[in-house]
Amino acid sequence: MRTARVPVPLLLPAGLGLIFLLLPLAGLLARTPWSTLPARLAEPRVVEALRLSLLTSTLATVLCLVLGVPLAWMLARVSFPGRRLVRALITVPLVLPPVVGGIALLLALGRRGLAGQWLDATFGITLPFTTAGVVIAESFVALPFLVIAVEGALRGADSRFEEAAATLGSTRWTTFTHVTLPLVAPGIAAGAVLCWARALGEFGATITFAGNYPGITQTMPLAVYQTMESGDLEGAVVLSLILLVVSVAILAGLRDRWLTAP
């Protein structure tokens, strides 16, 4: 087998890029206190933060699926005035620094916020400093990832199947549930994984909007930050390692099934 020589101007930066991505992970592993690791893992605050992180990022993903798939469908299948503007607006949270997102959420859903004061006055609901607030913050940041992935999948899907269903008398809703959804299921799954990973790592919007309290709003990234800030570098490394292992395990587990490039 003859392989063409890889040009050096491509090989060199590619190698540097790989090292750049992997070196920090190596640094993390090099400073991991392996001997005290099991005891550290069993600490209640670690278990609590991990449980909260898994719970909130999963709930955020469910919320994103419920809202995001129909939104993606609208963008891909329905032509309405201002569609391009809507698509552009959806990507704003994607490029917005998360801490800005957190402030924006406070001003919208906080106790004195645009919609928040109404929620408080009418239903007595306040979102900041609650686990629901964490889910909201994570969903705000993660939703665009899902919408963009699913819209891409919808645009790539062969619309003749949907047209065929329509000619056979299927309503648009039946077509959506029986033809479109199965067709783009891998795309939705890929979007959900991206969305979940983004929610799991969410920090800025969460600490700004939902605050920081163990067991209620202190997710793993917040626990990592607080542990590091309080001077317990070893503890921060342990928490980081858990997050790393959990994310890699989930991505690896889903990769073969859902994330293979077409």
């Binding site: 406070l106 906080g110 106790r111 004195r112 900041p128 400093f129 605050g211 920081n212 309290y213 163990p214 209620i216 709003t217 930050y225 607080q226 800030e229």
Partner: peptide, 19 residues
């Protein structure tokens, strides 16, 4: 408390915001 802030100004900001 409902939240444990990373510095005194962050705690004060939560009062200013009315949260």
């Amino acid at each position: 408390p409902v939240t444990l802030e990373q510095d005194v100004k962050a705690a004060l900001a939560k009062v200013k915001l009315g949260e």
